[in-house]
Design a protein around this nucleic acid. Structure first.
Length: 236
DNA sequence: GCCCAGGTGGGTA
DNA sequence: TACCCACATGGG
């Protein structure tokens, strides 16, 4: 091994070991979580768009409406009237925007991929990610959620929970870009779909239970031993 | 009443 | 590039 290689490993190892330790602590407490909560890959896509800046509970109401109306397929979602779709997804909020985004997505699916999600999601990861990002209404988090949970591709998902948790843990400053945070995980963890799937789900669970935006319950948190924020909060 | 929730796109300086 | 804002409902 040359010196450059050694330096790279020395540089990466502290991040890699901390990310791995956090994963194991969360997995020991909460796992396995078996995400994403959906029946089909297409339902993952719908959920990923509906949950944009929205509590998952409200997405569940909307998904249930779509299920009851029998429109949780690309063809049915393409055929339904815009106003009808808006009514069905109203509980998820931003319903006009999201109705447009859902129908733009399925239009793209039929125009370029024969209406087959699996066709869209096949091919090199970066190329598929670029195609997803080209869809209006699909930003980086939505694209990575679709890749990981609908396509079973190892693309790490960054969300508000990830940013909050790893900022408190001291691994982030809090103002890094989406791509920079994603790179922290992608560059320091093995690219395994099952690992990325479970890790993101564990981050969400940890933040729902302990790492709240306000009044975090630090004392029983499984990350207390590795969290400077939590130790300070408990000491105070 | 008020804050918050698993973002994204468009406009402005 | 870096902010600022609209988008909207339901729960604590």
């Amino acid at each position: 091994m040359n010196d450059e290689g050694k330096n790279e490993i020395l540089h990466l190892t502290p991040h890699a070991s901390r990310l791995t330790e956090v994963f194991h602590r969360l997995a020991a407490r909460f796992g396995p979580l078996h995400w994403w909560p959906a029946q089909t890959p297409f339902e993952v896509v719908v959920g990923a768009i509906l949950t944009q800046n929205t509590a998952w509970r409200n997405v569940e109401y909307a998904i249930a409406n779509l299920q009851a109306a029998g429109v949780l397929t690309p063809a049915a979602l393409r055929a339904i009237e815009r106003g009808e779709l808006e009514s069905l997804i109203r509980p998820a909020g931003f319903f006009r925007q999201k109705a447009e985004r859902l129908q733009l997505f399925v239009e793209h699916l039929f125009a370029r991929h024969g209406g087959e999600l699996a066709t869209l999601l096949a091919g090199p990861l970066d190329a598929v990610r670029t195609k997803l990002l080209a869809c209006k209404g699909v930003g980086p988090e939505t694209a990575d959620s679709i890749l990981l949970y609908a396509g079973y591709r190892p693309s790490f998902v960054i969300d508000a929970y990830t940013r909050r948790l790893f900022t408190r843990l001291g691994l982030l400053g809090g103002d890094e870009s989406y791509e920079a945070i994603r790179a922290l995980f992608m560059d320091n963890l093995p690219h395994e779909t099952d690992l990325f799937n479970e890790y993101h789900a564990l981050i969400v669970e940890e933040c729902k239970v302990f790492c709240r935006k306000r009044t975090p319950l630090c004392a029983p948190c499984p990350l207390l031993a590795v969290c400077p924020y939590g130790q300070a909060a408990v000491a105070a």
